[in-house]
Each structure stands twice: as C-alpha cells, then as structure tokens.
Design a protein around this nucleic acid. Structure first.
Length: 192
DNA sequence: GGAACGATTGAT
DNA sequence: TCAATCGTTCCT
C-alpha cells in the first residue's frame, strides 16, 4: 500500500490514458474505523461524446460533478440499490470520468468482509458496486477531492506489466468501443 | 404525472 | 436466466 496521492494534473490527461495509468494504483478510504483499500486492477473510460456516458446528453443534477474540476469522486446510485465510483478527468467543463471496476483487496480486509457479508477475498471487490460497498463509500463522497479528501487514489508501487483492452461491461449504447482495461492475468477482475 | 430503464449483483 | 428495487430520464 502507498499513501502518496496522485497529483491533480494526473487527471487532466486524456481519459483513456488516465484509465490505463490508474491500473496498479491504490484506491483508499481513510475511514473512521481505519484504512480500507486495494490495488486498482480494472477500469473503464467514459468519454463525453460516447452515448454510454452519463454526461453525453449534457449537464444534469446527477452528473454535475463530471463537468467540474478533475481529481474529484463521481459517485452515483444505480439499479435501485447499488453505487459506483468514478474518478473525474479533464478540465472543468468537460464531462468525462474513469469507472473503477475492481480492486485487489490490500488493507482492511476484515472490515470488507463484514461490510460485504462475504468471506472469500475474491468476492469483496470484484465489481464496481462491490468495491464501493467494501470501502464504505457513500453518496456523501460524491464530489469529494481525491487528492486531499477521505478517499484518495495513491501512486502505484510496481509498474503494470501488461494491460488487456476489451469492450465495456453492462452497457448497450457504445458497447463496441474498446474502453475497458485490466491487468493481464490478475485474478481479482470482475469477470474472467 | 407516468412509464421505462439502468456503467449491478446474487440467487436459481 | 431472472428478480430485486428506485432515482433519473424522457414522453405525454
């Protein structure tokens, strides 16, 4: 685990580059009960002109954070019962983000097990709504700062050897775009 | 005001 | 393969 957060400039880059470079970095929640976090092993890019992106049809109350400054958390509620976590990219005014789809659990694993009501390590963070539940992220984190807030993304320790690129999961519009990225041979991704 | 749908998950 | 479950979006 690394405690040095990525600088804000990192999130100003092209969203696809951010999605690729986030692999191997650490998503951490400094919760009141202690440190909970893991290594990012799977991401998806959401571009403004892409129909699957929440921001593709303009700014609304829900997606407003995506149009704000980079390096912020975009958390949204979906399917009536789950939340997903994104890192906002690009300069203010452009609505793009990277969805964090899976983590390799590192810190606070016992707390994750309790929050998820699951015992197996691979059931803790192998999906976008699962990792949000494991880390204890809520809608209160929507818009919070990823450099100085209670949820941060920290620099990678090891370089990622090989990245696999595929189409994204669970979308209809834009389903043919190669915007999903994961660490090759990592066993903690959301789908094999 | 009303209906359909969704960047998911877990059980069958 | 399918139900759970509700805020957002889009149509009337």
């Amino acid at each position: 685990m690394n405690l040095e957060s990525l600088p804000r400039d990192f999130y100003l880059q092209d969203t696809i580059q951010v999605a690729r470079k986030l692999l191997g970095c650490y998503l951490v929640h400094y919760s009141v009960d202690g440190l909970i976090g893991g290594k990012i092993v799977e991401t998806e890019a959401y571009l403004q002109q892409d129909p699957a992106c929440h921001a593709s049809r303009g700014k609304t109350k829900r997606n407003a954070v995506m149009f704000g400054p980079p390096g912020k958390a975009y958390v949204y509620f979906t399917y009536g019962m789950y939340h997903c976590f994104n890192a906002v990219t690009r300069k203010e005014g452009i609505g793009e983000a990277v969805l964090i789809r899976a983590l390799e659990p590192i810190e606070g694993i016992e707390m994750m097990k309790i929050k998820r009501n699951r015992d197996k390590i691979k059931d803790l963070c192998s999906g976008p709504a699962k990792l949000v539940q494991s880390l204890g992220i809520t809608m209160e984190h929507n818009g919070s700062d990823l450099i100085s807030g209670s949820v941060t993304i920290n620099k990678a320790i090891e370089t990622v050897k090989e990245i696999v690129v595929t189409t994204r999961i669970g979308i209809k519009a834009g389903a043919d775009l190669p915007l999903r990225f994961y660490i090759k041979d990592n066993s903690f991704i959301s789908k094999k």
